[in-house]
């Protein structure tokens, strides 16, 4: 556990109001976590600025999805641990739902990949002010839109139709999230022309483009060199 990631307990913590005292206690836990990691590194390798190869074939695509879900799950865990000023009860409920969805996606992909899963990535959220509603929702919108574009762009790269279906089961939930977050920012922007083209279709993105955007939230260097390209 790195200092710039949340303690594992953040994921299971119940949503509570933000306070300065709690912020300090989070920092303390983070330090404690760092010590803990050092002592059990053999069992649970955490990379520090190393290369992580997603692999090839369907494994590579699933690891690609796993990397993105790791970012999303870590992001919403931070959001709910450190709630922005003025979060309404309804927002709290929905954002906590999204957090649990992303954790479920991440854990599902981890288990589905088994021994072929990439390690837990070191996620960082430089530039996001978790106390600010605008900053948090702006980042959430970027993550959700990116997730939808990524799954859509990766569909054709998947060989096994069962994995294709699973990706389809996840991407529509990401799209539901994206629309909700967008409407929180500006009601009616759920499917505007920054993400939907003149044919009424989502603008999907290939892995290289997605990773160039997502990469700045990952301390490790992700290699997509072995991913299928068509």
């Amino acid at each position: 556990m790195k200092q710039d990631t949340l303690p594992a307990s953040a994921e299971t913590a119940q949503p509570q109001g933000f306070s300065r005292r709690k912020f300090l206690s989070v920092a303390g836990l983070g330090l404690a976590g760092a010590t803990l990691t050092a002592s059990c590194k053999k069992d649970n390798p955490v990379l520090d600025g190393q290369d992580v190869d997603l692999g090839g074939g369907d494994t590579g695509i699933l690891n690609y999805a796993y990397a993105l879900e790791q970012i999303e799950a870590a992001f919403y865990s931070s959001v709910m641990y450190n709630m922005y000023v003025g979060m309404t009860a309804a927002e709290q409920q929905m954002l906590n739902d999204i957090k649990m969805h992303e954790i479920a996606h991440r854990e599902f992909l981890k288990n589905a990949l088994g021994s072929k899963a990439i390690p837990a990535l070191t996620i960082r959220f430089d530039g996001i002010d978790f106390s600010s509603r605008d900053s948090v929702l702006g980042a959430a919108k970027a993550f959700e839109d990116l997730g939808v574009a990524a799954y859509n762009g990766a569909g054709k790269l998947i060989e096994d139709v069962n994995y294709l279906l699973l990706a389809g089961k996840i991407v529509s939930v990401e799209a539901r999230h994206a629309a909700y977050i967008r409407d929180l920012i500006s009601n009616g922007s759920f499917a505007d022309n920054t993400v939907i083209d003149s044919n009424g279709m989502e603008m999907s993105k290939p892995p290289a483009e997605v990773l160039s955007i997502a990469g700045k939230f990952i301390k490790d260097r992700i290699s997509a060199n072995n991913l299928p390209t068509d």
Partner: peptide, 19 residues
């Protein structure tokens, strides 16, 4: 890819109608 790009738009619609 075209079908997937329509599929997610339908999901965005569903989300908004539900709201």
């Amino acid at each position: 890819t075209a079908a997937l790009n329509i599929h997610s738009v339908e999901a965005r619609h569903a989300s908004h109608i539900r709201q």
